[in-house]
């Protein structure tokens, strides 16, 4: 449909399903519920490159002159559109010979409306505080991304996801579901948020490295960096020693006892220990993410054991 901007009178086409519009000419945000539906997160006041250097300095094996010998090449602020939804669904399924079972889901989900940034921000732990009502000045603060698809498309993809979740849950409650029926389905649009992300490119030793940084709280979404040759050598030495020790001890005891178990039990942990070290040594640009580290480090051992037992 065609809409007319109340600010500059420009006319432009928008998808039928959109309730909030951003004028491509003057940047005015208008439309039904514009004020409630459109938000942005303001950017932090700290220099993102300084945050990146702070993060890099603590990486194991990074050259000690990383801060003094690197130079900033690109520092770009991107405002990424994310549609937010509240979802509620209830589905029932007939379980052969046992009656009806039920699945219910109530979740909040964001759909990143930029194909490029989708991989970076998908399932991203957006911060707990700080959003503000949208202001058109935001469009001049960096690279402003308009949603690449309509709210209707986002709604369709989120609806598919909700169906998948309900079906999964039904199959967890019944081995053989013969018939399913949707009892309730609510997909509530809770607003479009423009979220700031910094793209940084820096030069070290004539090589370019890139990083993405959360523009709100400075969390490192992903960052590439070099590691010292000595560290690579140390990592390769440790992993080779582990593999040799595992193979030697395992083979010797397997031969003595006439069973493959000692070999299996020594070579598999040796491989398990060596993989992270070898992978890090053989990569030209090591990649790290503060978000992933936090998630991995905070997962308790019992979570891994439960997963294995399942």
């Amino acid at each position: 449909m065609e809409v007319e901007c109340p600010g500059c009178s420009a006319k432009f086409q928008v998808p039928q399903s959109l309730k909030t519009f951003t004028c491509p000419y003057c940047g005015l945000v208008f439309g039904e519920r514009a004020r409630e539906d459109h938000y942005y997160f303001p950017v932090m006041k700290i220099e993102p490159y300084a945050i990146l250097l702070n993060f890099l300095r603590r990486q194991f094996g990074i050259p000690s002159d990383i801060a003094s010998s690197s130079s900033l090449q690109v520092r770009q602020l991107h405002y990424i559109p994310v549609y937010f939804y509240y979802l509620h669904g209830r589905m029932i399924g007939r379980c052969d010979g046992k009656g009806w079972t039920e699945a219910e889901e109530t979740v909040y989900r964001g759909v990143v409306a930029s194909r490029f940034f989708r991989n970076i921000l998908e399932d991203y732990p957006f911060p707990v505080r700080g959003k503000k009502f949208f202001r058109k000045e935001i469009m001049n603060m960096g690279v402003y991304h308009n949603p690449e698809f309509s709210e209707l498309d986002a709604r369709n993809s989120i609806e598919d996801m909700l169906y998948r979740m309900l079906n999964d849950e039904l199959s967890r409650g019944c081995k053989n579901v013969s018939e399913t029926r949707v009892e309730e389905l609510k997909i509530d649009f809770r607003g479009l948020i423009h979220y700031p992300v910094y793209y940084i490119e820096y030069l070290y030793n004539r090589e370019k490295y890139s990083a993405y940084i959360d523009g709100v709280d400075g969390k490192i979404i992903s960052a590439e960096y070099p590691i010292k040759l000595q560290t690579k050598t140390l990592q390769i030495t440790i992993s080779s020693t582990l593999l040799m020790l595992g193979a030697f001890l395992g083979l010797a005891l397997s031969f003595m006892l006439g069973s493959p178990l000692p070999f299996i039990f020594s070579i598999i942990p040796a491989i398990g220990s060596s993989i992270p070290l070898l992978r890090r040594s053989l990569t030209k640009k090591v990649k790290s993410s503060e978000i992933k580290i936090i998630q991995e480090e905070s997962r308790p051992l019992t979570a891994y054991i439960k997963k294995f037992l399942r």
Partner: peptide, 16 residues
């Protein structure tokens, strides 16, 4: 045992 080795290796190269 494999988990012990793998987590130790991840801890060794970790920054935090």
């Amino acid at each position: 045992v494999t988990f012990l080795g793998y987590r130790s290796a991840k801890g060794f190269i970790s920054d935090v």
